[in-house]
Each structure stands twice: as C-alpha cells, then as structure tokens.
Design a protein around this nucleic acid. Structure first.
Lengths: 110, 110
DNA sequence: CAATTAAATCAAATATTTTTGATGTAAGGA
DNA sequence: TCCTTACATCAAAAATATTTGATTTAATTG
C-alpha cells in the first residue's frame, strides 16, 4: 500500500490523506472564512469580539466559522481569561498552499 | 481599494478573489474528487468510462464531480468523438497548492 | 440505417452545511 | 455578591450540495 506523509502526521494511506485534506479544503471553501483568515493574518492575533466589529457577522456565526478553521488546524487559539485569541497557523498554511496564494493572507507586504 | 491578482486574471478586489478561491477550494473539498484528481494525474489523461471502472462510481455521479473540478479550472477537458478526456490543469494546481501537496497528485515520483 | 456506446443533463430524494436566536458557562468588574 | 461581558454550544429552520435513476444527444459500430 502506497504511503503519504502529511505535515506533523505519521505516514498514512492515500485514502486517509484524502480525508484529512478534505477537511482542510472544506474549511477554506467559504469566502467568509477566507475573509476571516485574511483579517486574522493582517492583525496577527484577534479575539472574537473584535472580529464581530470588523466583519459584520453575529457572534455565534463567527464562533461557528472559527471552530471550523480551528478544527482544520488552519488557526491557532489562545485563551486569555474570557477572551479567545485566534492566530493564523502559518506552518500549516505554508505546507498547504502555494507561496503565491499565501500572499492572500499577507496583503500588506509582510 | 486593495487589489489582488489571481493566475490568468486581471487584478481584482479581495472580495472577488475570495469568491474565486472559494470555488476552487470547494472543488477540492471532497475526498472522492481528490481521488479523481489523483487518478487523473497518475494516468495523465482519462475518459469518463475508464474512470467509472477505476473508481466505483456511477457515470452520472462521476460526470457531476468532473464538472465541478472542470468549472473550478482544476481539470482540463478534451473532446474526441463521443469521448471526453480529462487532464490535470497543472498550471492552476501549481499556482494554488504547495509543492509538497502537489505531490499528492504525483504519487509515482513524477 | 438500426443498435450500441459515451457522456451530459434533469428532476426528485436525500444528506450535509449554514444561519438564527436562545441558553449556558465562566471570568471580570462594580 | 450581582451584573456584565466574552464566547461556546444547542436545536430548529433554511439553504446548499450530493445522489439516484431516467432521459437526451451525439458519435460510433455492425
């Protein structure tokens, strides 16, 4: 059986690799979530309440979308008191997307 | 207004860029379609009837999924008589995915 | 020309995702 | 301690996507 190795994972079968990538691409397959990724990246680190003001989106909706990105390991979460700060998982994004496309998440010449 | 440039497109707004990438990631956000991409890439060029035998999938289902990949410009189609031959759009895939990930579509050391 | 094959498309049924508004939990401040 | 704020989660409704089986179109074959 052919093996695939995915970032930070032990080698796996093609079929399991497809399932893992399916989840990551599903997370990226939404323009609102791409916008969230873009903003999170620009700001470096953002909490949910700040995001609700930046993008016009209800809190529960935002939490829902953030969870999808987080579960796909595209975002990192850090809890400080009652706040949750989200950051881009740069390592993961770099391993997934082309350099060119990573620029979508680095719009200010970073 | 900030501009983004996507492969083979005139510069566009972030919001339009997000919509275009949404479509491409949606196409990749399915393990069966990832498997199709993988097989198409291994074979170089495949027609629908060959694919139905390689992966266990009905003809109409396969046509449905191929259309999604084609509409997202991830596959190229060539009609020869009653046959449709599909190929990976390497240029597009290379511009979208990391080199590492492109290997998922080049499993035999190509 | 009739029969067969390849593949796209369609409409209905099914399944999955997303949205919405409400509720729960825990931390911080008065 | 009570009130407020931040955020996650929940269940029901709404919106999308996928599957299924049938039909259509057009090219090939006998």
């Amino acid at each position: 059986m052919k093996e695939f190795t995915i970032i930070d994972q032990t080698p796996t079968t093609p079929s399991k690799a497809f399932a893992i990538y399916e989840k990551k691409f599903k997370a990226l397959a939404d323009k609102k979530r791409l916008e969230i990724m873009n903003i999170v990246c620009q700001r470096g680190s953002v909490c949910v309440c700040d995001l609700t003001e930046i993008i016009d989106m209800s809190q529960s909706k935002l939490s829902y979308h953030l969870k999808i990105l987080f579960d796909a390991k595209l975002l990192i979460k850090e809890n400080r008191g009652t706040w949750s700060y989200y950051q881009l998982n740069e390592r993961e994004v770099n391993h997934l997307l082309s350099e060119e496309l990573c620029c979508l998440f680095r719009p200010s010449g970073r």
